[in-house]
Write a protein that binds this DNA or RNA. Structure first.
Lengths: 344, 344
DNA sequence: TTGTAAGCGTTATCAT
DNA sequence: ATGATAACGCTTACAA
C-alpha cells in the first residue's frame, strides 16, 4: 500500500540532502550573501530536485511580516472601484506587497467580518473605501470597531472619513469636480441645472450637493429643490431618479449625476419614454470606462486615478519604512468633456 | 521613555490572566465544547480585555489549512471577469473560503509569479482564467509549470485548458452561443454575417470561428474570409477591426463580436465615420453590464454566470471534503436579444 | 562561511 | 474538564 500522505518538504529535508545545516538553506532562501556560491548552487539544486516550496505561514510567523495589505471596497464589479483597485494592486506589487481584496457590498456586517479577517491575517495596512466611512452618521459600533482596528493597523480611508478615528485620508476633490461641472454648463448657457442620484446621509451626496448649491449661487442660478432627486448609486436608481424628474413640468436643461452609472440610467429612461436625449445636457462623475462608449459619450469628472492610487501606495510605502505621511491628501479632479453636454 | 514595541498578545497571556492553560484558551478559540461554560466566559472576557486576536499564520502552520483559494484572471476591470469573480467570492465565503485575487494581464511571467505566491501561501485550490490556458500553443515552460502546480494543488481552469495537465475544467458552451447567434440572425433574414475581434492562436477565437463557420454552412451561407477580422479583445481593437471591415466594398449585414467590448468599439467607429449604426445588426458575447445601456442596447450571449460560478464553487467544496468531482463541465449559454439586432 | 538552538503563536496528542 | 508538551516550518541571534 502506498503512503497516501506525502510528507511536506521542509528546509530540513533540503539541509539533509545537501549536507548542510537548515540555517544555510534558510540563508539561500532569504538571499543572504554569506553563503559560498558552490553551496548555494547545491542547495538550490536540491530544492528543485525535491520540489521544495517555502511555507509562507511559517515564514511570516517568525518574521512578523506579511507584506500584505487589505483592501475593502463595496463592489469590484463597479468600474470605479476596479479602476482604483487595479492601479493600487499594480503599484503595490512593485513594492513587494500583496493585496487581499474584499467586497463589502456596503454592508456593515460584511465589513466587520473582513476587518476581523484582516487583523487575524496581520495585514500591514488597510485601504478602506465605501460603506461605513461614507455615512454621515455611522453607528457607535461602527466607529468603535474602527477605533479598535486603527490601534493595531494603519488604515487609509479613500473618499471617506470617520470622526475621531486616527487614520490616513485621501480624497477626491469632489467639490472642485462639481464646481468645474457647473462652470462648464454655465459656459454652455445652462441656467437650470439638476442633480440626480445618491442617498441622503451618504457623504458623497452631501458633499456634492453642497458644492452644487454653492456653485449655482455663485452664478446666481436658481436652486430648485425639485431638481435635486436622490435615489441611489446604480443604473436602476438613475432611471428612477430621471423618471421622477421627468414627471415634473418645469425641467432643468442640464443634469448632473452623482456618478456615471445614474446617468446611464437617466439616458435609458429618456429613451424608454421616447424623450429626446438632446433635450438635456448630462454630466456624470467618476469617468468610468463605459462613459466613453455610451451614446452620446458622457462628459464627466475624472478622479485622476493614477495620482489617487499613487498617493495610496505612497502611504503604504512610508508605513513600510516607518516614515510619516501626511494624514490627509486631496486629489484634484479633471473634467472630461464629451458629447453629452452642449449649448442650451 | 515608553516602550515602543508593544508585545503581541498570545494565548499564553490570556491563559495567565485567566489562570488556565494555553490549551484551554485554544479550545475556546476553536469552539471545542469540552470547556466548562464558566471558564469559557472567563477566557472570552480576558481576550476582550487584552484585545487579543489570534494569529492566522500560527494557526495555519499547525492545522495545515488555509481555507484560501487563489484566483488568477487577466484583468478585473473587465466586467466579464469581475462578474465571474464576485459570484465566486460570494459563494466561497459561505463555505468559509477566502479568495486571493490576482490580475495577470495575460502576462505569462506575472502568472508565474502569482502561481509561486499561491503555492507558498498554500492555497487549497486555484481558479485560473485567461492567459496561458487560452493559448492554442502554450510554451513548454508554461505547460511544465502548470504540471508542477497541479501536483501540489487542484486547479480549476475556466474557459481554457492545457494539454496533459490534470485539472478540473469548466467552460462556457461557446459553440452553442455562436450557433444561437447565427440562428437568431438568420431568423431576421441576415445572410451576410461577419465576425470581428479576437486573436489567432487564442482559443476563444478559434472555437468561435469554428462554430461560426459551421453554423453558416448549416444555413448554406457565404463564408467570406474578408468578413472575419481578428484584432484583439478590447474596445480599441474592436474599433480597428470595424475600421478594417468598413474599408471593404462588400459588407456583411450582421456582425458578431468575439466579446461585447469589441462591439462597443465597432459602434464607436461607425459613429466616428458617420456611418449609420442601422446599417448593421450587432451581436456581442459575454453580456457584460454595459451592454444593456449602450445605444442601441446590445444583443449578446450570456454565460449564465450564476451556474458558472456555482459549478466552480461546487468543485471547491468537493475538494474540501475530499469528494471527487467530474473533471469537465460545460455550461450552456443563453442569447439575450436586445435592440442591436433587427430584420435586414 | 557555516552550524546550534531558541523562538514565533497556534493546535494536536496524550495524560490526568 | 483541563494541562503539559510536542509539533508545525521557518528565521535569527549567537557561536564557532
Amino acid at each position: 500500500m502506498k503512503k497516501d500522505v506525502k510528507k511536506n518538504i521542509t528546509i530540513y529535508d533540503i539541509a539533509k540532502e545537501a549536507k548542510v545545516s537548515p540555517t544555510t538553506v534558510s540563508r539561500v532562501l532569504t538571499g543572504n550573501p554569506l553563503v559560498k556560491e558552490s553551496t548555494r548552487q547545491l542547495v538550490l539544486e536540491k530544492m528543485k530536485e525535491l520540489d521544495f516550496t517555502p511555507n509562507e505561514a511559517a515564514r511570516s510567523l517568525t518574521t512578523k511580516q506579511t507584506n500584505t495589505i487589505g483592501f475593502i471596497l463595496p463592489d469590484i464589479t463597479n468600474p470605479f472601484f476596479s479602476q482604483v483597485y487595479i492601479e493600487v494592486e499594480k503599484k503595490a506589487l512593485d513594492l513587494g506587497f500583496t493585496i487581499l481584496l474584499r467586497n463589502s457590498m456596503s454592508n456593515s456586517e460584511v465589513e466587520s467580518a473582513h476587518l476581523k479577517e484582516f487583523t487575524e491575517k496581520r495585514v500591514e495596512c488597510i485601504v478602506f473605501m465605501g460603506g461605513r466611512i461614507n455615512k454621515v452618521q455611522p453607528s457607535e459600533e461602527e466607529i468603535n470597531e474602527m477605533r479598535e482596528v486603527v490601534k493595531r493597523v494603519p488604515v487609509i480611508m479613500v473618499n471617506g472619513k470617520m470622526k475621531d478615528v486616527n487614520c490616513y485620508r485621501i480624497r477626491t476633490n469632489e467639490e472642485e469636480g462639481i464646481r468645474l461641472t457647473v462652470e462648464h454648463l454655465v459656459s454652455l448657457g445652462h441656467k437650470k441645472i439638476g442633480l440626480i442620484g445618491g442617498v441622503k446621509g451618504i457623504t458623497s451626496l452631501d458633499l456634492k450637493t453642497a458644492a452644487y448649491r454653492k456653485s449655482l449661487k455663485a452664478f446666481d442660478l436658481e436652486v430648485n429643490p425639485n431638481w435635486q432627486v436622490p435615489s441611489g448609486f446604480s443604473i436602476e436608481k438613475g432611471r428612477e431618479a430621471m423618471k421622477q424628474l421627468l414627471s415634473q413640468k418645469d425641467l432643468p436643461t442640464a443634469i448632473i449625476g452623482i456618478n456615471d452609472l445614474v446617468i446611464y440610467g437617466a439616458l435609458k429612461e429618456c429613451r424608454e419614454q421616447n424623450i429626446s436625449i438632446d433635450n438635456f445636457s448630462f454630466v456624470g462623475f467618476d469617468d468610468i470606462f463605459p462613459s466613453d462608449i455610451v451614446h452620446p459619450s458622457l462628459t464627466t469628472v475624472n478622479h485622476n486615478y493614477d495620482i489617487l492610487s499613487s498617493e495610496i501606495v505612497k502611504i503604504i510605502q512610508n508605513i513600510k519604512v516607518g516614515k510619516a505621511s501626511k494624514k490627509g491628501k486631496i486629489i484634484n479632479t479633471k473634467l472630461i468633456i464629451r458629447e453629452s453636454t452642449k449649448e442650451v
